[in-house]
């Protein structure tokens, strides 16, 4: 299928500050692109340009087959946007919000009403539908916002950090709705700081940092870039560590990673189960009875951290360990 988003050399500067330097990206129809980046990377700026909210300073972009600068109207008829901050009227009820957006999508009164009800039901908002959105929790407000962006049955959906600040349960609810929408054929561009989110939802991931693309690929490809599966062994006694290291070293293609503080040794596994069996055999031969013995797959966290590097390690340390 053709690309529903195609951007080349997209650039935006605020004064002399380059927020987006030169971004190329493409999203094939029916797929989900995750845009991953730390605070200030330029994710919101990128989304706003693609959604025709912000003038483009350089390069060009086509969304849903139309140039964002030349035919913003055509683009707007085909997109839905859930911005980083919920864009709903807090002094209207959810029902009124959705009806208003429906009318502005030029649905007639009944169609707007019907579409609104449908979405209220789908996002489990019927009970609260007649309360002012201002009284809603963050998660509910996000749901109204997402519902509002779906009223026009968009071909392309932009989601800017859709689950930031939500608890795990609300996040799950939102993820499910997004997945459902994708199954119905909508293409999605989603920005996030949660690597797990990109892993869960995205077919492809673009990592951006300081306004440029730092890496791109399928989540699995990106993960394999920081190395394949690893075996992780934690010894019971510190004194067993040298034995474990010498047992595992012959199997490992490179020097084993050792953490003396935790008594942890990890090696890359080149031959899957075969190497795993060898490792178990070698450890038994050396008389080491490990506390933990298991496979470890690098997560997108590792990709992210190895790309973004030490600069943000301290900020991001809560997300996982750095392996540089």
């Amino acid at each position: 299928m053709d690309n529903v988003i195609q951007a080349e050399g997209l650039r935006k500067n605020y004064g002399d500050r380059l927020a987006v330097r030169s971004v190329d990206l493409s999203v094939p129809g029916g797929s989900v692109l995750g845009v991953l980046g730390p605070n200030g990377a330029g994710k919101t700026t990128l989304v706003r340009m693609l959604a025709t909210l912000l003038d483009v300073d350089g390069g060009h972009a086509e969304v849903a087959g139309y140039d964002v600068t030349r035919h913003p109207r055509k683009v707007r008829e085909r997109i839905g946007l859930t911005g980083q901050y919920a864009a709903v009227d807090s002094r209207l009820t959810a029902r009124e919000n959705l009806r208003l957006i429906g009318r502005l999508h030029h649905l007639d009164r009944f169609a707007a009403e019907r579409r609104g009800e449908e979405l209220l039901r789908r996002f489990d908002l019927l009970d609260a539908a007649d309360r002012y959105v201002g009284t809603y929790s963050g998660g509910m407000r996000r749901r109204v916002d997402l519902a509002a962006s779906l009223i026009g049955e968009p071909m392309v959906l932009f989601l800017d950090e859709p689950t930031t600040g939500l608890d795990p349960a609300s996040r799950q609810v939102l993820w499910d709705s997004i997945t459902e929408q994708v199954e119905a054929g909508t293409s999605v561009l989603l920005t996030t700081q949660y690597l797990e989110e990109a892993d869960r939802l995205a077919d492809r991931v673009v990592v951006i940092d300081e306004g440029s693309v730092a890496a791109e690929g399928k989540p699995a490809e990106l993960k394999s870039r920081v190395g394949g599966e690893r075996l992780r062994v934690v010894v019971r006694e510190r004194s067993e560590l040298p034995g474990a290291i010498s047992a595992l070293a012959p199997i490992a293609p490179e020097e084993p990673d050792v953490d003396t503080a935790t008594g942890e040794v990890s090696i890359e596994l080149r031959n899957g189960v075969e190497s795993l069996a060898q490792a178990a055999e070698a450890l038994r031969g050396a008389g080491v009875e490990p506390d933990e013995f298991g496979l470890y797959r690098p997560s997108l966290d590792d990709v992210f951290l190895s790309l973004i590097g030490d600069r943000t390690v301290t900020e991001q340390s809560a997300l996982g360990k750095a392996r540089t």
């Binding site: 706003r48 959604a51 025709t52 909210l53 109207r73 707007r76 008829e77 997109i79 839905g80 946007l81 911005g83 901050y85 919920a86 864009a87 709903v88 009227d89 957006i101 502005l104 999508h105 030029h106 509002a148 962006s149 026009g152």
Partner: peptide, 13 residues
């Protein structure tokens, strides 16, 4: 200053 402007600007109006 309200995010609603963004919503309006993403609509075909």
């Amino acid at each position: 200053n309200n995010g609603l402007v963004d919503r309006f600007r993403s609509l075909p109006i």
